[in-house]
């Protein structure tokens, strides 16, 4: 009986400590983002490469997925609105649900699956190959050189790609509103303008930035936890990915609460 409570207590303490560590670590990285010294030529090169790998390389596939998935989603939602006689809520559904909620979520899921997993593995491999140690030997700050560019890349990529996704969805919305409701572009634009709230857009953009920050920070953190054995790589990668998805859920819930308050 005693051991059960001990185990439970240990687990809770471990969880809270890990959470607190992550927050402290995030704080440390966040402060470095605003330090001028961080932006060395080496760091800028890494940042450039990271943006290239995360956003530019993925762009054609991302646009394709956005068009296909977004059109499908908009078509279904508009059809449902028409069937249930909720045409009056068309603008609010389009802006509040699809543009500010689903588009960031779709983007973050795609980027997590493609880039966060890669970052996690890359860090673990660097740790196993003692590259991290070599960097430290040459007084190259790991946070400045490896973490900050990846985290900034996460923020930039998610914000830009999510905005692109939203624009793609709005454009496909024009087509579907014409097909399903017989709505002209003028009416569609007017409805969107009336339904749009700047605060909602700002919250959505801020949420994207938070997503970007954590979906890169958590994999790096877990990647750096790898030991010097190759077998530790899959363990830290799977742990990192589970935690990334948990973070996505927590951020989504928090953003919902922000909207409610």
């Amino acid at each position: 009986m005693m051991s059960f409570w001990e185990n439970l207590g240990r687990r809770v303490i471990q969880m809270l400590t890990a959470f607190a560590d992550t927050i402290v670590f995030a704080g440390k990285v966040f402060i470095r983002i605003f330090r001028r010294k961080t932006y060395s030529s080496a760091m800028r090169e890494v940042l450039l490469n990271q943006i290239y790998f995360t956003s530019v390389q993925i762009l054609p596939v991302f646009l394709m997925v956005s068009i296909l998935f977004g059109s499908l989603l908009i078509g279904i939602v508009f059809q449902l609105l028409k069937e249930f006689g909720l045409t009056g809520f068309f603008g609010h559904v389009l802006m509040g649900l699809i543009v500010t909620e689903l588009s960031p979520l779709l983007t973050v899921l795609l980027i997590t699956l493609r880039s966060a997993a890669a970052i996690n593995t890359e860090m673990a491999v660097m740790k196993v190959n003692r590259e991290i140690k070599t960097l430290e030997m040459f007084r190259i700050d790991v946070i400045d050189y490896l973490l900050v560019p990846r985290v900034i890349n996460g923020i930039i990529s998610i914000v830009l790609l999510s905005s692109l996704c939203s624009i793609v969805l709005l454009v496909s919305g024009t087509l579907f509103s014409w097909l399903i409701f017989g709505m002209s572009i003028d009416v569609y634009t007017n409805i969107l303008l009336n339904a749009t709230n700047f605060s909602d857009i700002l919250i959505a953009l801020f949420k994207c930035a938070i997503y970007g920050f954590f979906i890169t920070l958590i994999p790096i953190r877990f990647g750096l936890r790898a030991s010097h054995e190759l077998t530790s790589i899959p363990i830290v990668v799977s742990q990192g990915m589970v935690n990334v998805f948990a973070a996505i859920l927590i951020i989504e819930v928090l953003s919902l609460l922000t909207k409610l308050l």
């Binding site: 450039l48 943006i51 956003s55 530019v56 905005s163 692109l164 624009i167």
Partner: peptide, 11 residues
């Protein structure tokens, strides 16, 4: 990368 960031930011 510059083209991507520039164009997307402009859009």
């Amino acid at each position: 990368v510059g083209l991507f960031i520039g164009c997307t930011a402009i859009i």
